[in-house]
Amino acid sequence: MTQIAPNAAPNAKAPTDQTVGPWKEAWRSFRKNKIAVVGAIIVVFFILLAFIGPLIVSQGINEQQLSQRLQAPSAEHWFGTDDFGRDIFSRVVHGARLSLMVGFLSVIGSVIVGSLLGIIAGYYGRFVDTVISRLFDIILAFPSILLAIAIVSILGPSLKNALIAIGIINIPNFGRLIRSKVLSVKQEEYITAAKAIGMSDKRLLFSHVLPNSMTPVIVQGTLAIASAIIEAAALGFLGLGAQAPQPEWGKMLADARIYLINAPWTMIFPGLAIMLTVLGFNLMGDGLRDALDPKMKN
């Protein structure tokens, strides 16, 4: 008997390995993907920058030192100064907060509204589905930045309105995703069983259908934050998003245009910040897609 015990132990361990949860498995797979980890590090860096960066920079974002106008990068001003003598490093650091805020909030808004519409369309089908799906088609019929411009031209230029516009243009992407997921989930046996025991539609939708449809939303959401940051910067660049003196990266680029010859650093650093943040979210999103839902690849 004593000889059997050591052999039994590995056998007993085997089922534990098989019962590793899907999230843990996804995390393992994500960790192995070096490029995705680099992306996650970039994202965490910019999130930290957004939270604690403004506390550690020496100069205020709107603190003007006219004697220090258009100074090249130096030990005192790491990224140089702009035409008002404001420290570009301080402004880029503060800009991280604005860009990430727009990215996260607009995507959260799109996810909430898109999921609601998608779940209603997918679950109830028929006429409701036709109306909602056509609405998505119409919104998707516009190039996204153009629709954002149209919405901002109605609401008026501001960062808040840019956030709303970006939120609206992304709704159909999440709506369609959730709709198609709901269509497949609602065929599952556990949904039929839940229906059979008389579970209400509301509880069924929010306790069972929605949680089981969330994987692609997490992936799409991460990638959508990247495009939301670019779209917000684009609107800021066109003068339709953040307004002076907000240190939004796109607006900073627009202001830097006239100093391209004399002070190119006013343009280089805000643009680099946008590119790195977007790259981080894209790499992380790709990694999440491979880890959570390999079928979505391509």
């Binding site: 910067a233 680029l253 830097a256 343009m267 280089i268 643009g271 946008i274």
Partner: peptide, 8 residues
């Protein structure tokens, strides 16, 4: 970002 690439 296309606008940054253009400026660069």
């Amino acid at each position: 970002p296309i606008f940054w690439l253009g400026l660069m």
